[in-house]
Amino acid sequence: MPSDLLEISDLIVDYDIATLQPRPVSRSAVVARLMANGQRSAARLVQRLPASNDTLDAEACNLALLRSHIELQRLSEEFLQADRLRCVLLPLLQALRDAGVKPPLRIVDVGCGLGYVVRSLAAHGRLGRDVEIIGCDMNVTLIENARRLAEEESLSCELKVANAFQLEQPGHVFISTGVLHHFRGDDLNMFFAGQRQGHAFVHYDIQHSVLSPWGSWMFHQARMREPLARHDGVVSARRVHSTQTLLSAARTETGFTCASLDGARNLLGAVLRPMTATVGTRAELWEPLLRHLGPLRARLGPAR
């Protein structure tokens, strides 16, 4: 089995990065790629997806992704992901205010999916009236459902079908949850390069550990029912980047001061803290951030 496994969700939909328009995807091409990568069970899952003249049915694929993201929301809820972000965003926003950054302070969630974190922060984050929360994703189906949920909850947040790095009003703080491992090599560098315009970022992903794939497998077997979610959830844990890889890419592409938060120092740490964050700010904001972090400062790794 290759070390760099593929996730089905990355293969069954495709978008033009400039226009955000969906592009047709060949089912046989996806199946062949998975087979060549030694992922036979994943290839069988894709082979069962409906297609017309070998082109995957976009609606069926989007519905499978929607069901998977509904189950992923459960993961975010159980891991208190919005609370984790809020604990970092509150001192970070205060550092921006102290530095005289003009409001509104825009937080942009990159690849927000169903917008769980955006909606939760809007409902319970208590981030301040000078803060705008924006969720961006290229999948229309996910954003339409995220908007519906936000409207039902009467939440003050924006959910856009958009490239998070090409907004008319650029973000001050970029955030994400479970997105980093989708980017490899040059794509990871481009992901961070898009954030040079901002002032800071906080990106959470699965803890890099030998235990992570086993924990992910047990959780997904117990809690997930959607085959795509079960497959990709376990593969995600095997694809996560090391702290060194993330900090190197982030520092090189943004020039920000960066550090990991809640990085596991041993196997027990990996069990107790299944998620870790890559945090970065412009150089002049780092010391103010440290002052406002309080006890959370002890959970930061060395700055780079």
Rank of each mutant, 00 (worst) to 15 (best):
C136A: 11
C136S: 11
M138W: 13
T141H: 09
L142A: 06
I143V: 07
E144N: 10
N145E: 14
R148K: 06
R148T: 14
R148E: 15
L149P: 14
A150E: 11
A150V: 14
E152H: 13
E152V: 09
S154M: 13
L155Q: 05
L155V: 03
S156D: 13
C157E: 03
E158W: 13
L159F: 03
L159E: 03
K160R: 11
K160I: 00
V161A: 00
V161P: 00
A162P: 08
A164H: 00
F165E: 04
Q166I: 04
L167V: 04
L167M: 07
E168W: 00
P170Q: 09
P170D: 12
V173M: 07
F174I: 02
I175P: 10
S176R: 11
G178R: 14
G178H: 12
V179G: 00
L180Q: 01
L180G: 01
H181N: 03
F183M: 07
R184S: 09
R184F: 02
G185F: 04
D187G: 04
D187A: 12
N189S: 10
N189R: 13
M190F: 10
F191M: 04
A193W: 15
A193N: 08
A193K: 02
G194F: 15
R196C: 06
Q197C: 14
H199T: 07
F201W: 06
F201L: 10
F201Q: 04
V202D: 14
H203N: 13
D205A: 02
D205L: 04
Q207G: 03
H208V: 09
H208E: 06
S209T: 04
S209E: 10
